[in-house]
């Protein structure tokens, strides 16, 4: 009967990028790991993503980006999250992310980066680790 605190994750697809198979599959994997996953749908503006994160009180935002624009998108979103006081929300980024960009993303304040090919296990462990 004990209620363990559940991790709530928003999986979001920003911008014009129209491939969400990966995002949906990751959402399923997180569900099976006992998390509550909100999927935003395609073509979200960063304002929509931030507002959704507020209304849904999520612990993690998982951005899925295949368009190559991960650097500017992440930077903008982090600024917007700061403005809205979402300091306790972790931002993670997945999708088509070249390895050389990972340090840059982390420097901006992205908590974890899961480039294409990361196993579900690694994603789940990575997210769980944020709450240890």
């Amino acid at each position: 009967m004990k209620n363990k605190k559940k991790i709530r994750v928003l999986i979001a697809k920003p911008g014009l990028d129209g491939h969400d198979k990966g995002a949906k599959i990751v959402a399923l994997a997180l569900r099976d790991a006992g998390m509550e996953v909100i999927y935003s749908g395609l073509h979200q503006t960063l304002e929509q993503i931030t507002q959704t994160a507020i209304q849904e009180t999520v612990d993690v935002i998982g951005l899925s980006i295949m368009s190559g624009a991960h650097l500017p998108i992440s930077e903008k979103l982090i600024n917007m999250m700061k403005e809205q006081g979402l300091d306790d929300v972790n931002l993670t980024v997945g999708g088509v992310i070249p390895h050389r960009d990972i340090p840059k993303l982390k420097e901006m304040g992205v908590a974890e980066v899961f480039p294409g090919g990361t196993s579900f296990e690694d994603i789940i462990t990575g997210i769980n680790k944020l709450f240890e």
């Binding site: 509550e36 996953v37 999927y39 935003s40 304002e47």
Partner: peptide, 27 residues
């Protein structure tokens, strides 16, 4: 697993930035 996919909201996302609309998913 105790997990959930909360997928109702995605059909209402056009209202996400309207200040007078509040949408909350619950499992």
């Amino acid at each position: 697993s105790g997990g959930a996919i909360l997928g109702d909201r995605l059909r209402m996302q056009r209202h996400a930035t309207d200040e007078k609309v509040f949408i909350r998913s619950m499992a």
